[in-house]
Each structure stands twice: as C-alpha cells, then as structure tokens.
Design a protein around this nucleic acid. Structure first.
Lengths: 217, 217, 217, 217
DNA sequence: AATGAATGAGATTTCATTCAT
DNA sequence: AATGAATGAAATCTCATTCAT
C-alpha cells in the first residue's frame, strides 16, 4: 500500500493526495448529512470525520451548499450504476420471465433498502424543495434512468412475445411501484431493517401481480 | 358551536383565546417547518408567522422539538381523517367496482398530492431518524390505519364475490403502491404540481392493473 | 391552629393571610437566593417555593432587588437577636470568667455556623458591592451591634476588676476574631459542617489566648 | 526571556499571541466577575473588556463556568505567591520578634485588603457552594498553604526559644484570625478602603495580643 | 388580592466562514 | 495546499416584569 504510493507513482502523489482528500471530504460529508440532516449537520463535524481541518474543506468546496450538492450527487451516481446493473438478468428476453423478474426485483430492493439509498432518499425528500437542481440531477439521473432502462427491457420482452403491453413506460412505472411502494411502511421510512426474506416476499408478490396484468396471455 | 362563542359563553373567551393561540402557533410552526426544514426553521420566524412573541411559544411548548412533534402530529391526524373519509365509496361492496376504485383512487391521490401531505411526508422522511416516536405515531396512525381500513373494505368486497384474494392486506398494500408510487417521480417529490387529469390517469392505470390481478374471474 | 384563624380572630383573617403570604414569600426568597445566588435565582422559582403565583410577588414587592433586600434584612434581624441573646451569660460580671466566656463563645459559634448565618454571610459578601445600603443596615445592625454589646459587657467585667483592658472595643473585636476567624477555613466557607466538639475546641482556644492577653493580672 | 520575544524568536509570535489573548481573556473575566458577580456577569461584556469577539472566548474556554474557574484560579495562584513572600521576614528566627511579626502582619494585611484579594474572596464566598472544587483548589492552595507556612515559621521561632507554644498550627491560625478578622467589619466586606495606618494599628494590636499569649516568658 | 398569559430584552452558545501563516 | 485562530451573525431559550381578568 505504502509502496504503491511512494515508489510506483511518486509523481502522482500530490494530485492523488488531493483527490483522495476531496473524496474523503465528500464521503464524510455524506455520512454526516445523512446522520444529522442538512440543517443540523455542521462543517466542523464533517471536517473531523474527514480527518482534515475546517478551512481545508473550504479550499475544496465553496460553501456548505456545494458540499451538500456534491456529496449527494456522488452517492446518487454510485447508486444509479447499481440500479442499472441490477437489470442485467433482463438483458435478453428470458424464458422464465417470472423468475428473472423476481431476481431483478430482489436486486433492486436490496439496493433500495441499503443504508446509503435510504440516506440519500431522506436527504432528497428533506432538501429537494431548497435544492431543486438536485432533484433534477439526482432523481432524474437516478429514478428516471432506472425507469427508462427497465422500460427498454420490458419493451424487448414484449416484442419477444413474452409480455403484452402497449405501454412499457407505464408497465415499468408500475413494476417499480409494486416493488418499492411497500417498503416505505415496512421499513418505517428506512429506519428499520427489512430482512432479505421479507424483501423477497414483496418482490414475488409484485411479480405475481405484475404478470397477471401484463404477462403472456 | 359558533353560538357558544358569540352569545352563550363569553366568559370562555380567555380559555378560547389560549386555545386559538396554541392552534395558531402549531399552524405557523408547521408552515415554517415545511418551508425551511426542521434544522433551518427558526423559532423567531414561527413566532412572527403566528403573530405572537417568541416566549409565548415557549409558554405553550417546551422546546423546538416538542413544537415540531406537536405541529406535525396535528397535521398528521387531520390528514389521516381525510384518508379514511376518502374510502367512503367502498363502504358497501359495489357493483361497479372499477368505477368505485377509481373514484377512491382519485380521492386518495388528491390528498396524497396536497401541499400539506407532501410537506408532512418530507418532514417525516427528513427527521424520522431523529424523531423515532413521530414515525411510530404519525406514520403508524396514518399509513397503517389507511392500509388496514382499505384492507377491511377489500375483504368485504371479496366476501361479496366481487374480487378474489385470500390476502386483503397484501392487496391493499399493492393498490396503494400502484397509486402513490408513481407520484414520487411525477411530482418530483412533491415539488411539482401533478394536474388532476394526470392523477386520474394514474388512478385508472392502477385500478386496471389491480383488477387484472385481483378482479372477479 | 385552624381554629385561631377561623373562630378566634375572623376579622383578622384577611390581613393575617396577607401577612402570612408576605412572610412565606420572604422566606422562600431567602432560601432560593441562598441556594442559587442573587443573579442565578429566578423569581419563578421563588414563587413556586412560596406556593404563590409570580405576579403575587410583584403585588408585595416592587422588584427583585427589593425582594432581595427585604428577605435578607429579615433574616439578618432574626440572627442579630440571637447574637445578643448569646451574650446573656456575661450580663453580670462573673466569677468564673473563663467558663462564661467559653460558654458565650460556644453559643456565638453555634449561631455563626448555622446554615442561615452562612447563607446570609455568603449573600452579603457576594452582593454587598451592589447593595451598599444592605451592608450598612445588615452588617451594621448585625456585627456592629454584637461587637458593641460585647464591648459593653467586657467593660463591665474590666470595671469589676476581672479583666484589664483600657480598650474594650478592641478586646471585643479580637475576641470575635479569635472565635470566627478559624471557622472560615474549617467549614470551607460554610460548605462543610463543623461538629460541636470542634467548635468548642476553637472557643476554648480563643478564650485561653484572650485571657492571657486581657485576663486578670 | 524578554529577549526571546523581541529578537531571538519572532517565529513564536503566533503561539505567544494566543497565550497573550488567553491571559487577556482570563484577566478581563476576573475583572468583570468581580464587578458584577458570577450570575450577573455576561460573556459579552467580558469579551468587550478583553478586546476579543465573543466566540473567541468559547474557543479558549468551554463555557462560562470554566471561564469562572480558570480566571479565579489564576488570581488565586498569584495571590498565594504573594502571601508566601510576605512571610519572608520570618525566615530566620529573629531577635526583635514583635517588630518582625508586625512587619509580616502589615504585609499580609496589605495583601488581604487589596482589591484583587477582596474580589476573589467575595467570589469564593458567593459561588463556593456551586463550585465546590474551587473552594478546594483555591482556598486550599491559598489559605491552607499560608497557614501551614506560617506554622512552620512559628515552629522554628519556638524551637529557637523565642516563643512558647506546643501547637504552632493553632498559633498560626489565631495569628491570622487576629489579623484578618477585624478587617471584615472595618472594610465593610471590602467595600471601603482601610488606610495603611489603620491596618498597621490592627497588626500591632494583633501582635500584642499574640505575644502576650505565646511570647517568651 | 391573586393569577394565567404574554412579552421585550437579553443570556449563553453555535455556526459558517475568513485571515494570516 | 493546509491549518490554528478569530469573528459576525444568528440560534435557542430564559427572565423580570406587566396586563387583563
């Protein structure tokens, strides 16, 4: 570890260090914002959690708002990648549609129920009104991207004759609603863990209903 | 009622005034919390909006936290009444199930999309972690009560042979998910208005899917 | 007790009640001032301790300062009576001077070390600068009166040939100093109890030294 | 020392400046506490008197209580040094015991009657109950240290045959009582200046009585 | 005479942010 | 680039005091 820093890429040490520090700040910021909420979070605590001095934060970010924007955007991007990856099993129109949808549903729910995901959702709900471009960027890049990707997959499935729907967008929207809607209450807005088994039950119920509505004749 | 105020019981003016003031404080508090978020809201602003002096607030409520708890609880109770009332058309197992469900769905969505409702939801998401008993009280008394009442109605409908479902709770959960799930993205977490027509479309789609899964054979 | 109020002197009930209430307020005020200090004491707490409403206090006393003045003055007067009474054994020039002085010393020390006495002393030290007329009244009526009374007694004793001193005032001053001076440290400014036996020891030592300086040839 | 500041170590200006500022804060705090009393003193005024901003105080001290503790402890330590120094003339068992004791008495009284000393005593009396460790530290390090040092000196004097006392501790205690006891009333608890001549008179009277009790046969 | 309610003023403390090094 | 120190502004909460009843 130390080696890779001191001998392999010594020229990059400074820049690398800077980037590392920036990342450490963003990570710490997200943790603190998630824990305390934007208004209650204080820069001092973020600095402490990032292991840097307070002014260092202001060297990297212009103010608390930027810090919030950038730290949440970073997490949102990371999560969004996961969502897209979770659709992988649907890439090819499958034979065992129910199984595949259930698998995808489970993957999506696992992500949806992760601490990070709930933390981000809480922050967006809380501060979306006061950070409208965050909603645009994050929720846009996040939820919309997922919905559209899922709609694409469903369209292929329908085209392959394994589903019937003239409206893949609506179908995707409802599939996601059937998956995530129930988690709100079951996890008490993310404050209680929902065990994997229970999540699977929700996914199976969602798929069952979904396929009765959209499944092959 | 109005009578007792103006003619029968002028002696009660003082107590009544106190109650009025308390209500004014709670209302103002909710508005400010909704606008600014818990952390950013300041008691001074709440006092100004309620038309009282700052210490008056502390005469009625012990501290900012209590103020938050009580003001949100009051709104939650009010909204919860509305939800139950919205189920009214389902009281008797109806002939035209689709129409009635659509009507109920529209009513629920209208409530769900009201400013007050979004404001409360935002605050719960935002501060639920730090006010766990709020989640219990408010979300419990709110969402659970609605879900259970709806499940009761659906059970009756099923009993009357107009639906088939061995699990009215799950059915209610999914019906609500199909209704409210799509609103999250469509209203951008409550920051954009969703016109009534669009809400009706969502309700109709929800009912369509719901009845294909649970409707009479 | 209740009788004397209701039947024996019914005409006086109101006035008596008012006086009682005033006394209750003064007593409560002294206790709270003693416990918290003038600046930290709050009228609300005094009212609670007196069992009356806050405005009632303002009906009896003009403001917090008056309350302080009157409550401390009342206690000071009470204590002063005790001091004078403690000199009783010296009324007649005694044969067994040492014993009598020791007895007087013990009595004075018991008073000096009472909770009330320390409380008053603390308040005078603390606020004397800001309530100069209190020092005049209280310390004057208190300490000076005691010193002068003691000097009178000592003068009589000297006149009776049982002491030799051309300066009874100075002798009284020193006797009191020998008595009370050591208590400051021993009781940690009144925060630790000094047992009676220890007080007697101090009194005996004071008398011994005093008599070696002023005793009969 | 002075050198290191002006010529040798200009690099230390920052740290030195911090220390200076800390000292300025402690000094100002003591002055304000002495003037107003703990409860009435306000941090804003202390900040103004120290020439710093309010938050700077909270950067150095955790809260008002710490500020009180530290500022009084600093003064107490300073005064205690003076007390010990005042005993200097007694270092060697002297020939002219009366003169030396009088000299020491005068020095002690001068200190005892200084503004700073009265201010500290007032604060200890006033707040000792609520700051018990202050009494321990300050009064302990102060009064006890003086009494013990004086007892040491008196023991030497007795050993040299110039006094007779089997109990130097008691003798020291009484000597100090004879000195300081009378000042309480004469200075009206430190609110009136006692001129040097008067102090000398008290010291002489104290020495006279003391030596009649403990002096050489 | 007594009180519930209200309030202006001000207390302590914290925070985001900036200098100077 | 990074930090120790400092600060203006503002937050929550308390207090002595006064009305209206």
């Amino acid at each position: 570890m130390a080696e890779s820093r001191t001998s392999v890429a010594p020229r990059r040490t400074a820049a690398r260090g800077r980037i590392d520090k920036r990342q450490a700040i963003l990570d710490a910021a997200f943790r603190v914002f998630a824990r305390e909420g934007y208004g209650q979070a204080c820069v001092k605590e973020i600095a402490a959690e990032a292991g840097v001095a307070k002014p260092t934060i202001y060297n990297h970010m212009h103010d608390k708002e930027s810090l919030f924007r950038e730290s949440t955007a970073a997490v949102a991007a990371r999560l969004s990648e996961g969502h897209i990856a979770a659709l992988e099993p649907l890439r090819e129109a499958p034979d065992d549609l129910a199984d595949v949808l259930t698998e995808v549903g489970c993957r999506l729910l696992a992500l949806h129920c992760s601490d990070e995901s709930w933390a981000l959702r809480r922050l967006l709900y809380a501060e979306g009104v006061r950070f409208p471009e965050l909603l645009e960027t994050v929720a846009g890049q996040g939820d919309r991207r997922l919905r559209e990707a899922l709609a694409d997959r469903l369209a292929r499935v329908a085209l392959a004759g394994r589903m019937r729907t003239p409206d893949p967008d609506g179908a995707a929207e409802q599939f996601l609603a059937l998956l995530t809607g129930p988690m709100e209450a079951r996890s008490a807005l993310g404050t209680r863990d929902v065990p994997e088994g229970e999540r699977r039950g929700v996914a199976e119920a969602a798929v069952r209903t979904f396929l009765m509505a959209y499944g092959p004749s």
